[in-house]
Design a protein around this nucleic acid. Structure first.
Lengths: 362, 362
DNA sequence: CTGTTAGCGCGTTCAT
DNA sequence: ATGAACGCGCTAACAG
């Protein structure tokens, strides 16, 4: 029941020409080759009438290009953000006429190889290798012999493979800037800090957030009022850390939570003690997960631009794929990572004080 | 740099046999056709040595089967649950040697057709058409001429295309059962009700949840203490609805929230009035979104089995694909939908009373 | 037991 | 201006 497809041969027969002729006019090269308008119209009409669509498998075999991409990540299901990354990728691909195979490894190297093989067997034109948590890894050898781009991933040493990453460092700086501008100087860190070394070792993003925060503070002649590193960034930890801080008798002016889940826990701890956000304590955070906007009050947070990252990654990839076609032989020069801005979602968790008290922007 | 692939011809040459012979032994039909063991070994060794992998595009063209599936949904990014559905699907596919093209329409019919075409052009063996919100829709004509299964979607009339859906009705029944067993009889509905007609018209799932709840209540000789239909099931609505209830002077014994977002809003409203969950009011809900476990206390909720649904859908699909190969001609009999159970995640939002006060299970 | 032949559907010379 | 012929890489008839 599947083989109802119309072939080029049928179109040619219908139009009374040879298959090759039909191929030419449908490829738009008819006028270039000075085929009569009448004939061209005849072919086009026949194709239209029959509902002809080229068999992409055949074209792929013939031309070596399948207009198909591989998207392999360690996790597609962990959060909405993962979905956003994929959506950005498949949308951008479709916009340029590509389809994408998506695979998930769960971090299993074995499985990754298996998927890579299965996709390359199907002659994908390029590969985006993605991760849901920004970290550093080695490239699989397959990624070398075909156009590839890394998404939310960094590699060691100089490399010619493009990477796209969120600009965590800048977001860290902006987070303290946002607080300082509003006169908040008693800033406590929840999830990492107080020193450069106090960040989860596996998360590049965490390290850069911290780095940005500390640098911005230092530039203002300040340092964190406290810091509390922790390995898991989940609400219970946020709750515990914030509770400890509060139990120590301090009421912080502002909290920088290293992600929204920690912030959710912080809200809970604050709420249990009758402390109001933002009147008693201000909170800024990172990620902009779904519930950030539903917390009361709405959480001010820096969004991980996952959609944009997915989009950028496949755009870079397709650029490479199409460049590789007209093989210039170049393209193996080291390339810097593309850093995408993390937009600030201003909501209601940071206190708005009068301008007089605020430190002017530097 | 991409064309380093070893072909069957090279393997055959290396082994000193004809290509067709090599093909046969690598397909495992060597012994069946009584080829000498020595020859078979030679071929296998050559393939191994050269790192041969069949070009799946060529195989696809030749055999008509690409071992590739189409997964098209209206949204992949809306929630973690969407990701789970996809993960279930791609995992099940991989386990059976299939890869999947993922596409998203955003509900745009135009785009859906475009994606369908692009995927069928690439000769996918089957289609899963999915939605993130359970509803009823018409089948695109393409879904008729190839194996297809509907995921979280229902169609009008009898049909031979399999559908997989969560068992919302059963979950609705169980929700009231869970409350009744614990002696809770003053049950208020947040998001729908109090009558059968008070449910969002576009959501089949909502209607069935409500139906199950009402039936179970009726079986126990009860009816909802109140109901409050609303179109958007988001935290602000949950907050508003619950606040209204409370402002009316009633302190409900138990709330059935129609989803976790509404429940989050209910928690907030309760919290603002100093009412404790579950000591003052119990809450059950549906979906089991990510934050349900992070609410304090943890939210007892019926999980949408998205992962399992994705898995089941592709398993049914692949069964059909492989059945269609050895064309029995059958398969066009009407088929009932596969209803997957929504497991109850018992957490801490329902009060545990002493058995004496509880209504025994029927 | 093995190799030859044919063709899946298409794009691309190369002679007309 | 047009069509015949070839081949992408593979599988499956059929001969030998």
């Amino acid at each position: 029941m599947n083989r109802k497809r119309v072939t080029l041969a049928q179109v040619a027969a219908e139009a009374g020409v040879a298959a090759s002729t039909a191929s030419l006019v449908l490829a738009g090269r008819g006028s270039e080759l000075r085929l009569s308008q009448a004939l061209q119209e005849r072919v086009r009409a026949a194709a239209e009438r029959l509902g002809y669509r080229p068999n992409a498998v055949s074209v792929g075999l013939r031309t070596g290009s399948t207009r198909t991409l591989a998207f392999i990540s360690d996790s597609v299901a962990s959060s909405r953000l993962a979905g956003e990354m994929i959506k950005g990728a498949i949308d951008a691909a479709r916009a340029r006429g590509f389809l994408v195979f998506v695979g998930e490894t769960g971090g299993d190297v074995q499985l990754e190889r298996q998927l890579l093989n299965a996709m390359f067997d199907r002659q994908v034109d390029g590969l985006v290798l993605a991760s849901m948590i920004t970290h550093r890894r080695a490239l699989p050898p397959e990624a070398t012999r075909t156009p590839a781009v890394l998404l939310n991933l960094e590699v060691d040493g100089a490399t010619d493979v493009p990477r796209v990453l969120p600009d965590e460092y800048a977001a860290g700086r902006e987070a303290v800037g946002h607080l300082l501008e509003r006169g908040l100087r008693d800033i406590h860190l929840i999830g990492a800090g107080p020193t450069e070394d106090d960040a989860p070792p596996f998360s590049l993003g965490a390290q850069q957030r911290l780095h940005g925060i500390l640098d911005a503070l230092r530039d203002a002649g300040l340092e964190p009022a406290s810091g509390s590193p922790v390995i898991q960034w989940l609400p219970p930890e946020g709750f515990r850390l914030t509770s400890q801080l509060l139990d120590g008798g301090v009421v912080p002016q502002a909290l920088i939570c290293f992600n929204d889940r920690l912030a959710m826990g912080a809200y809970q701890a604050l709420g249990e003690r009758g402390l109001a956000v933002p009147d008693d304590v201000s909170v800024v955070s990172f990620d902009d997960v779904s519930f950030a906007q539903w917390l009361r009050p709405g959480l001010t947070t820096f969004a991980l631009p996952h959609r944009a990252m997915g989009k950028r990654a496949v755009e870079l990839l397709i650029d490479r794929v199409e460049a590789a076609k007209d093989d210039t032989g170049a393209g193996d020069a080291a390339v810097a990572p593309s850093l995408l801005p993390m937009p600030l979602r201003v909501r209601a968790s940071v206190r708005e004080v009068d301008a007089a008290a605020a430190v002017p922007r530097v």
